[in-house]
Design a protein around this nucleic acid. Structure first.
Lengths: 205, 205
DNA sequence: ATTTGTGAACAGTTTCACAGCG
DNA sequence: CGCTGTGAAACTGTTCACAAAT
């Protein structure tokens, strides 16, 4: 199978999200256009890239489409182990976030350079001082890190994370992380998001 | 001036972020490649799209480049008024978030459908029950909304927000929001981010 | 000598438009 | 008949490679 373009992948992830809340039996590409905002033709192309034909004259069968997506994101079936780096207010929210339930993403460790925090905070998985970062990540076979540390520590931690084999980082800090090409970063910082949103809103106005 | 492509804009926003922490006098496209991860040629093209020439044989003058970016994002100089919709744990963090200080983005209102919360919580700007949503947004001339409500309320609130003229939404919910083409959405949900990251990491492996 | 800025070539993505299928 | 699935066309974005600038 040929590699699927990155933009298509992002849309397919969103489609997957969309379908997870979708109740009806069938869905047309036109309906997806209304719900998600990308063109019907594009969506049809994206779905055909999955290599399945789950559509007919009355639209796609929602179930089959869901299955095809889960299958495509098959890596998603085997669990991906994640850790939270930085246990300030944001990190603490994510600690006992229920959104990852029933997902293949498992939080298995938390880190903070303030030992007080790692001792006082409660969590169903262990919390460690950052001195243990490299050891725990290797031992626990952790793939992804959620970075919620202070600006000052951000690049340092990113460097340490990549050096011990992390594959991707969800970046809650406003810093642009310098990482090897092999490591992927998804920026979800509040200010950054507002700036991108603002740019996009103004360019089409 | 010709419209700048969306991908370029996103990179320019990140470049702007990068420079905000950058100390040296000059920066080369090669250096940016190392720090931010996009190719030197691409960065040179992006910068040239700004319509300025701030580079020379020893690289770009960091100051002039910063200025050009700020100028390009000039809308960023006039303040953009924002509101938070949903004052659960995530909304509360954003309430007294300091990241927006010295930025053109001003939080001017918060909303929650639980009146208890709007009364008990403290904030330097007023908190309202969601019944007031439309009135306050129009009165306060609010452009952007930060959506941190529960899944169940997400689409409803998005619909109400668009109906009263909001231009963009930073979406912290896992829902795919259905909005008119004129309204932009930036998805920063935790689960969604992990899914996108995971897809990207696996496609290049 | 080094690095920008940019035409021109290339690669990738999206749209068009319609044949084929249920 | 409506909707998918897809070749082919159109378009957009990226890289190449080098002239110009300092």
């Amino acid at each position: 199978m040929k590699a699927i373009p990155v933009p298509s992948q992002r849309r397919l992830v969103l489609l997957n999200r969309l379908l997870s809340d979708y109740q009806e039996k069938t869905i047309t590409s036109q309906k997806i256009e209304t719900l998600a905002g990308f063109s019907a033709a594009l969506i049809r192309r994206d779905i055909s890239l999955l290599g399945v034909k789950c559509g007919a004259s009355n639209g796609y069968k929602a179930n089959e489409l869901k299955l095809a997506l889960e299958d495509f994101f098959s890596f998603s079936q085997k669990e991906s182990r994640c850790c939270i780096v930085g246990l300030g207010r944001m990190g603490q929210i994510l600690l006992d976030n229920t959104e990852l339930e029933n997902s293949p993403y498992k939080l298995v460790a938390g880190f903070d350079s303030n030992v007080n925090r790692t001792e006082i905070l409660h969590s169903i998985f262990p919390l460690h001082p950052t001195t243990m970062l490299e050891n725990v990540i290797k031992q626990e076979n952790i793939s992804y890190a959620i970075l919620t540390v202070h600006k000052k520590e951000a690049q340092d931690m990113a460097t340490r994370l990549t050096s011990c084999g992390i594959r991707g980082i969800v970046n809650y800090t406003p810093c642009i992380l310098s990482v090897p090409q092999t490591v992927k970063v998804e920026n979800v910082n509040f200010l950054t998001a507002l700036e991108i949103l603002n740019a996009e809103c103004n360019s089409s106005a």
